[in-house]
Computed example of a mutant assay.
Amino acid sequence: MPDVHTHSDQVLRSLRQSGPLTRGELGELCGLSRTTLYEVVSRLVDRGLVVATVPDTGPRGRGRPAERLALNPDAGRVLGIDFGPRTVRVAAMAVPHDDIGTAGEPCPPDAPWPERVALARRLAGTLTGGRLRPGVLDGVGVSVTDPAAASSAPAGRRTLTALIGRAFGTRVRLDGAARLAALAETVWGAAKGHRDVLYLELSDRVGGGLVGAGALHHGAHGRSGEFGHITVEPGGAPCSCGGRGCLQTVASTTAVLNAYRATADVPDLVAALRAGEPAAHAAVRRAGTYAGRVLAGLANALGPGAVVVGGELATAVPALMEPVRRELRTNVVRYGSQPPLLVRRAELGDFAAALGAVFLLRRPTDAASSKSGRTAFNPAP
């Protein structure tokens, strides 16, 4: 039988689509009994997501005007904050209305945490129309490039979480940027509609995430997704992890640029690819080939329904996907009439981690609701 969360979603969806309704109108629209509707509405009013008002109809005749129920515009907001290496990005979702706004601003890589948090609060205030007051937020999800590094930093993980909690006056959950991008691409992006997704991010740092049955996989010690430290060239270039020949050493942004020309940047690489320079194409082909081999091995072990490749390189260099797809076609084992593995480039761009951070604080039923296409995602320019 449907649970109270399912009924709550029905009521919120009806109010979102139809505007203020009487209890009788709402009951007919949702197909709920009076007893069930009373219980569900009472819970939503107690949570502050729904408000009940009696319209002022002027001089009253007999009887009291029917009470009308509406979404509370000031309640149920959830924030996702991505503290990137050089940019702070914020995504704000009003849960009852199920719409999203985003904003971002550059931040010096050496900026202290209090300064970064203050910037995030200012961006959040802009997105919420100045309504960022105590009691308005249901929570803040936080993305950091490397959770382990955040834990060992002077502001350690617990201190950082407390700092953000004090600044926003609500609960805080923290996770890794690549994992959260995987979650966002599953809910809104390239893997929308799939529940088992393998995500690889190719940027300055090579990492990724695994979504299983619609939920993030963290591993026993919270370090899952370190795909960049899978060895692809035994005895190859040294890696920051202490190993040699890791995927990080051949498929990160820095590694690909160095393989092309040490002084090049990403726009230089893109221009060289368009001009047909062999060295540029060789560097991209090498990175894509090794990334595809790693993904093929992971896909054979984990059996995802979709593979998504994101990050700076995948966004700027679409040609990277051709060798990735080739390696997956060649090396992923298929059984019987099993369809080919879906392989896509990420769609959410720079705000993927912030959007994933929003979903750290939402129920699985909320995610299912957004998968139906009702969520309005308005990325910042």
Score class of each variant (00 low, 15 high):
137 L>G: 02
138 D>K: 00
138 D>V: 09
139 G>I: 10
140 V>L: 01
140 V>C: 01
141 G>Y: 10
142 V>P: 05
142 V>W: 02
144 V>I: 14
146 D>M: 12
146 D>P: 05
146 D>R: 08
149 A>E: 14
149 A>L: 14
152 S>R: 14
152 S>C: 09
153 A>H: 07
154 P>K: 06
154 P>E: 11
157 R>V: 12
157 R>S: 12
157 R>E: 13
158 R>I: 14
158 R>Y: 07
158 R>M: 07
159 T>P: 00
162 A>S: 14
163 L>V: 01
163 L>M: 13
164 I>K: 03
165 G>R: 10
168 F>E: 10
168 F>T: 09
169 G>E: 11
169 G>F: 04
169 G>K: 07
170 T>C: 13
173 R>V: 15
175 D>A: 15
176 G>L: 09
178 A>V: 15
180 L>W: 06
183 L>F: 11
183 L>Y: 03
184 A>C: 08
186 T>Q: 09
186 T>M: 08
186 T>L: 02
186 T>V: 11
187 V>P: 02
187 V>H: 01
187 V>S: 03
188 W>S: 08
188 W>L: 15
188 W>H: 14
188 W>P: 01
189 G>D: 11
190 A>F: 02
190 A>K: 06
191 A>G: 03
191 A>M: 10
194 H>T: 10
195 R>K: 10
195 R>M: 09
196 D>K: 01
196 D>Q: 08
197 V>R: 03
197 V>L: 05
198 L>P: 02
199 Y>C: 08
200 L>K: 09
201 E>N: 05
202 L>K: 02
203 S>K: 04
203 S>P: 10
204 D>M: 12
205 R>S: 10
206 V>Q: 04
206 V>K: 02
208 G>N: 08
211 V>R: 03
211 V>L: 05
211 V>N: 01
215 A>E: 15
216 L>Q: 06
216 L>H: 07
216 L>W: 06
217 H>P: 00
217 H>Q: 13
218 H>Q: 14
218 H>W: 09
218 H>V: 14
219 G>C: 12
220 A>H: 12
220 A>E: 13
220 A>Y: 00
220 A>W: 09
221 H>Q: 11
221 H>F: 12
222 G>I: 15
223 R>W: 14
223 R>Y: 09
224 S>Y: 14
228 G>N: 07
230 I>M: 12
232 V>F: 01
234 P>Q: 12
237 A>Y: 00
237 A>M: 00
240 S>F: 06
241 C>P: 00
242 G>V: 10
242 G>N: 02
242 G>H: 06
243 G>F: 01
